[in-house]
Design a protein around this nucleic acid. Sequence first.
DNA 1: TATTGTTATACTCTATAACTATA
DNA 2: TATAGTTATAGAGTATAACAATA
Lengths: 156, 156
Amino acid sequence: MTGATPRQAEIAMRSFDRSLPMALLRAREATMALFRPMLAAHNLTEQQWRVLRALAAADTALDVGQIAAQTFLLGPSLSRILNNLERRALVHRATAPEDARRAQLSLTEAGLSLVGGIAPTSEATYAQIENRFGSERLDGLLKLLDDLVLAGSDSE
Amino acid sequence: MTGATPRQAEIAMRSFDRSLPMALLRAREATMALFRPMLAAHNLTEQQWRVLRALAAADTALDVGQIAAQTFLLGPSLSRILNNLERRALVHRATAPEDARRAQLSLTEAGLSLVGGIAPTSEATYAQIENRFGSERLDGLLKLLDDLVLAGSDSE
DNA sequence: TATTGTTATACTCTATAACTATA
DNA sequence: TATAGTTATAGAGTATAACAATA
């Protein structure tokens, strides 16, 4: 035969539906769909928002490596994102006094104000999710997701 | 003040740690880290693999719109990915007889063979996850993720 | 020499709009 | 006119290597 007919039965692999990476992607897409309009309204990409969020959550200034680890961004991507956020005066960059190689990043007043302004909308969306999904189930889900990460990072 | 000191306490928003989109991203990254070497060994991007996986799982040929919906890829991205996979002779493209606008995509013998060859490695990785995480908990997680998608897609 | 971070480069994906072909 | 899909275009992220500055 020339063309090709799909024959799932011939492949010993779980169904697309039960694929864990796909299930995580679907869930993330469904969730982000609720938050995306909020970010678009402020001209923020998801990645930029992750950086701002990490800085807002930190009790202290963060260096580039710490932000990269928390946001799952690679150095080169993060470098450009930080340039962008600095140009928009949302982020402040200083050199660590004890190690001139290391940068210290923090939110500016404007950055803090932006995150603080978005927070109510974000929390309203969360309330909507908790309302529909149940807050106990949401807690359970977060716990399972944390445990999955631990299971993945265990020694081989 | 000039610089900026982060003050999480001033922002009424849940911690970065308890952010659902971040938890889903972390879990997905941790999971994909286990599968990525397998894809890299076959020169497949995650998106290309999602397309092959969708075609392998289908009982019949799929059109571009169906693949886009299942893989969360946009038309233009998918168009290029399909060109790439067609060039590599992994995917076969035909025109639907009843509607010449519609394409019918399926795996070629080589595509089927590729997916079939990767399947054992994929299943071994799954077995590892189930072993560490527990298969009942994995089932529970998949169920919660499905329900979350339903909760997100409900009428506003 | 090792580390922190940026720059260089090539590729891929995202996103929106415009377009072609078909219905 | 509406729909399926591709092409155009601009922007942003991914990934690896090379590099500069500092330790």
